[in-house]
Design a protein around this nucleic acid. Structure first.
Lengths: 66, 66
DNA sequence: TATCAATGTAACACCTACTTTACTAAATGT
DNA sequence: ACATTTAGTAAAGTAGGTGTTACATTGATA
């Protein structure tokens, strides 16, 4: 399973879900869905997310069993 | 635009598209479609691709203007 | 030239990422 | 208590990724 640290990064930057959504040009629901693992973002969106957090994709998304 | 070096890595390993496809458990057409930019792979598939090439996602996929 | 392996194209179907809208709920402050 | 902000759920729709099947093309080699 591919997990992520989106919420960790987001809260670390003091951003609300709406803040992050507008920076990514996606809906707030998309942010919620990613944080709550309702679905995996596309590769393109994963790139954008890593970018706004000044990180590599692997720092934000990572594989973990279970 | 998100480009990739899948073909470079694949040929570097002396793998045919069919070889790579079977290692990734996807169809040969999916490999073709990614190499020819018919579509972007999902994040999960991008992870698998980076893995079979013993690389980071950013080494295989990268953003480039135009 | 005939054959075979590797690569490519096209069409169809399916699933899922993502949007939009609307509503609920929890937390915080006044 | 009330209002506001933030987070969460749910349903319907659109777009695009992915699989499948079938056929075409190129290149190498016998």
């Amino acid at each position: 399973m591919i997990k992520n640290k989106v919420k960790v990064f987001r809260v670390g930057n003091n951003w609300t879900q709406a803040d992050l959504a507008s920076q990514l040009n996606i809906s707030r629901q998309a942010v919620i869905s990613i944080e709550k693992y309702k679905y995996l973002p596309s590769l393109e969106l994963a790139f954008k997310i890593a970018k706004v957090f000044n990180s590599q994709i692997e720092e934000v998304f990572y594989e973990e069993e279970e």
